[in-house]
């Protein structure tokens, strides 16, 4: 099964798009309209140009990050709404989740990089999970949180986007 990634709707790419456009506009402004008045204003520093390059670089890094560690959308993501009880149960389920299939996989960076997804959506307080595309996990009550995966830029299973050392 082909993995469907969030692509352009990954929040990192959205930010990169905005910052990248800002950067390009500034670089163009820096080259085009750096007359003496503007330069004097910013103390002889062509700030548009330099800030523009910095923003382009930042955008490129964000894109690189999202390419290296893409968000993979679980195919079963489309699901219906749920009742309050289900949602509540899910919340508590997260808490009680001690054992489960997903936790171990998620903790393992290499497995996770293959697109492991981890869910905490289970009304009975049990963690369900699935590894790669096998979809073998049990779903006691699928109706609630999993819907969050339906969003294109839901990072529901970028298990380690927060594991990037550079975050810190």
């Amino acid at each position: 099964m082909a993995k469907k990634t969030a692509g352009a709707f990954d929040i990192r790419n959205i930010i990169a798009m905005l910052v990248g456009i800002y950067g390009i506009v500034l670089v163009v402004m820096g080259f085009a309209s750096a007359d003496q008045h503007e330069l004097d204003k910013s103390d002889g520093l062509n700030i548009n140009l330099w800030a523009g390059w910095a923003m382009v670089a930042a955008a490129a890094l964000l894109v690189l990050w999202s390419v290296l560690r893409p968000v993979v959308i679980p195919p079963e993501a489309e699901q219906g709404a749920s009742g309050a009880v289900g949602a509540r149960g899910a919340a508590e389920g997260t808490a009680a989740a001690g054992a489960g299939t997903a936790g171990a996989a998620a903790a393992d960076g290499t497995t996770a990089a293959d697109g492991t997804t981890e869910r905490t959506a289970d009304g009975v307080g049990e963690r369900t999970g699935r590894v790669d595309d096998t979809q073998t996990a049990t779903h006691g009550d699928e109706q609630n949180i999993s819907t969050s995966g339906a969003s294109a830029f839901e990072p529901g299973d970028q298990d380690h986007s927060d594991e990037e050392p550079k975050d810190t």
Partner: peptide, 23 residues
């Protein structure tokens, strides 16, 4: 875009408890 993922109150109020830590 975020609207597409809201179908329960938990989605709406707590983002379905699904976001990564850097976000």
């Amino acid at each position: 875009v975020a609207r597409r993922q809201v179908s329960t109150s938990l989605d709406f109020f707590l983002s379905g408890r699904s976001l990564p830590a850097w976000v």
